[in-house]
């Protein structure tokens, strides 16, 4: 995500300054993945198996009242 977009998110971030030039979407960090690709594949497969069906509907249905 471009740094510029991050800084505009709250409307109160005028004081924030970035050294980094806005960059394109960064490549996902894959350091751990490279070392243990098999382990990660296995993990993601396992999680595929426990994730609720129909992600969009499930997430949309999770509506909470505000708390403290």
């Amino acid at each position: 995500m471009p740094a510029q977009e991050q800084r505009n998110t709250s409307g109160r971030d005028e004081e924030v300054e970035a050294d980094a030039v806005p960059t394109p979407e960064p490549a996902p960090a894959g350091a751990a993945g490279n070392a243990q690709t098999a382990g990660v594949d296995d993990l993601l497969d396992e999680i595929d198996g426990v994730l609720e069906a129909n992600a969009e509907e499930f997430v949309r249905g999770f509506v909470q009242k505000g708390g403290q």
């Binding site: 740094a3 991050q6 004081e15 970035a18 980094a20």
Partner: peptide
């Protein structure tokens, strides 16, 4: 504002005044 910005800056690149 800094609290929000720090949270959004997960790449840990920004500096704050």
């Amino acid at each position: 504002g800094t609290l929000h910005a720090v949270s959004h800056d997960w790449q840990l690149r920004d500096k704050y005044r």
